[in-house]
């Protein structure tokens, strides 16, 4: 399923979606950025509560399909602009990481 379809079918806010056609092929949950860089796979939807600009760099380098911010976390405008410029999809939700993962379960298995 693409990021655009996933966002439409689930209770998620779209903060920016420059590449709606990216396919979600897995899910990775984590907030320690080096840990994410060591273990997230290309195409994963990355669920995190970390919200500084560096997450955009991490998403770009790992080539995840989108960032999903859990538990009402938001991204400041500068970080959002960086995300748009670099083609990084950012969604947010009031759900916990666990419940977001449950939404993804049927999408990626």
């Amino acid at each position: 399923m693409t990021v655009g379809e996933f966002a439409k079918q689930n209770p998620l806010n779209v903060l920016c979606m420059p590449e709606a056609e990216r396919e979600i092929t897995g899910c990775y949950i984590g907030d320690l950025l080096s840990w994410v860089m060591g273990n997230a796979r290309e195409g994963d939807a990355w669920v995190t509560i970390m919200s500084n600009t560096n997450i955009v760099a991490v998403a770009t380098l790992t080539n995840v399909s989108c960032i999903i911010l859990a538990e009402n976390v938001t991204l400041d405008e500068q970080a959002l602009n960086t995300a748009k410029e670099n083609g990084v999809n950012v969604l947010s939700s009031n759900l916990s990481a666990f419940n977001i993962a449950l939404l993804l379960k049927d999408t990626v298995v």
Partner: peptide, 15 residues
């Protein structure tokens, strides 16, 4: 607090 300092930097570089 920014999400760095997990002690994975150099290990990741090697990896």
């Amino acid at each position: 607090s920014l999400g760095f300092g997990a002690g994975m930097g150099l290990p990741n570089m090697k990896r």
